[in-house]
Amino acid sequence: MLEDATWELARGAKLRVKGPSSHGTTAFLRLCAGLIHPQSGQVHLEGEPLSPYRFSHPFLDRGGLAWVPQDGGLLVNQTLLVNVALPLRFVRGLSKVEAEKRALEWLERVGLSSLAQRRPHAMPPQERWMGALARSAASGAELWLVDPPQGGLSPALRQKTQELLDSVTGDPTITVLLVEDGPWLTDPPRDWIQLAEGSLSTGSTP
């Protein structure tokens, strides 16, 4: 996918990841999250390398990463509310009551509070994805890696997603990488990184 590429993501940057279909934009996000590993070379998060043989990383262990994959990646044997509350309990150390209260607030903001007691398999893909967005927003992560849902979003959900991302990622210390896959945001970031023919290039749309 990439050869001889070195790239540093500055704290607070907001970037679109561009690339022709099947050129590995999703794989690039997975690489940044440490879910796949390069055949040679390393990926560092806050100076600490991501290793395939360790089940922990200081940045991930403190809940620094917001991972929003195409299918949401929610636990199917738990309700949506538990899915959103779980990282708050496990990573942030909140009590069950406090975590579920905060999770419900975020579900309300994305319009999913009525589905809080449903399991993800009983929800449409777009709403599963919105649930993952709420989970990430609730966790207060510093680095957002967002892959849009398959099939895109309806105009109403697109507007809601834009509002949520604007409110959460408006903070200058929060870093965002969004895969550009059609017009799924009403106001996408201007800066971009492009993957093409094994190389990386960056730029900005005026």
């Binding site: 199917v76 990282p87 990573v91």
Partner: peptide, 17 residues
């Protein structure tokens, strides 16, 4: 099925070992 549906990846990425 958790591995194939990306649930294990999401746990890892969310800081849940």
């Amino acid at each position: 099925s958790m591995k194939l549906s990306g649930e294990v990846d999401s746990l890892w990425a969310s800081g849940m070992n």
